[in-house]
Design a protein around this nucleic acid. Structure first.
Lengths: 174, 174
DNA sequence: CAAGTGTGATTGACACGTCTACTATCCGCC
DNA sequence: GGCGGATAGTAGACGTGTCAATCACACTTG
């Protein structure tokens, strides 16, 4: 069990494929995150009738001035593209969780406004949702594991954004 | 840096909500995994025209005896429910990646068979796909981080399955 | 063998995400 | 003022995932 890697062989540059161990960790990582995501989403749906998307939108609106936000502003705040938000907000409007209003200062624009129903639904959802995050995630890990999970996530994200925004460089170097 | 938690206060039982730090790690964890998932999926789609679901199905079939599998067997092998598999396989059949055949030994049953087209698509996809996993995941992490990621994933999954299959106990204990 | 139950698989309805296209408006500039 | 490009938002098409309903066949049992 001790041998960390079989990398005593000279690696020619970086053309190497993942080893079986590395691939196993990848699958554990990605599948577990997926399991957790659906587990927490199912809990939120079951106990509060909200999807994760609903929760994210309601959270942003409940923290916004006047419980309202311009559509684009909301989209960039939660990291969605406008189309996704528009579709989702359409579904939420049918359920009376939010309301769309015209924007006074820009006739193209729309404001998404939190309704009473939406605010109530959000208020009822926070405690169960946070509790589920605690029981399913936080409680499962030691303090060291939690710190490691955060470290890994930040490292991965930094690597991802770093390599993503240099496509020109990658080509130009050739 | 040193103060791991503010938990010098006595915690009354386990009614505690996640702290801001814990919540931040949760969001880093779940959002990063989501980013990685879509990043790798987009790469596979762009370079090979396959979705992650396609890849999973094709991988299972390419490893199966005679490149064919009973539908239920395939579903449980890859951890999907039958409905999901049926929908997906329907779409894959339209693209000629697989074929459905009647089962000789059980007239209810169906066999999913890998087509030539599907086998070729899978063969072309493995190297780019594994390379993407390496560059986006494995290469981003140190050996210690990789080990920690695996450890965290296994711990989380164990905790999840453990608490999931004792719902009666949780209720009954009260 | 007939009735009843369980199982294999499909289907339809709906929520969700992404991409592309389109409309309406705003803004800078001549 | 009016032209042209940028921006805000919506809409359609399609792949994907989940749930409940359905259908056909298999199996068990009287």
């Amino acid at each position: 069990m001790g041998e960390m890697t079989a990398n005593t062989r000279p690696q020619r540059r970086k053309r190497r494929m993942p080893t079986a161990d590395e691939l196993r960790v990848w699958r554990e990582y990605i599948e577990t995150a997926e399991l957790l995501r659906t587990h927490v989403a199912a809990s939120l749906q079951r106990e509060c009738g909200l999807s994760t998307g609903d929760y994210v939108v309601l959270l942003a609106l409940s923290e916004a001035d006047g419980h309202r936000m311009r559509s684009s502003e909301l989209a960039s705040h939660i990291g969605w593209d406008r189309s996704r938000l528009s579709h989702h907000v359409g579904r939420m409007e049918r359920r009376d969780l939010i309301r769309r209003e015209e924007c006074a200062t820009d006739n193209r624009g729309a404001e998404i406004v939190l309704t009473r129903t939406g605010a109530d639904a959000f208020d009822r959802s926070t405690v169960p949702h946070l509790r589920e995050i605690r029981t399913a995630f936080v409680d499962a890990l030691t303090a060291e594991q939690l710190a490691a999970a955060g470290d890994v996530a930040r490292t991965l994200r930094a690597h991802l954004t770093e390599t993503d925004q240099l496509p020109a460089n990658g080509r130009a170097g050739r």
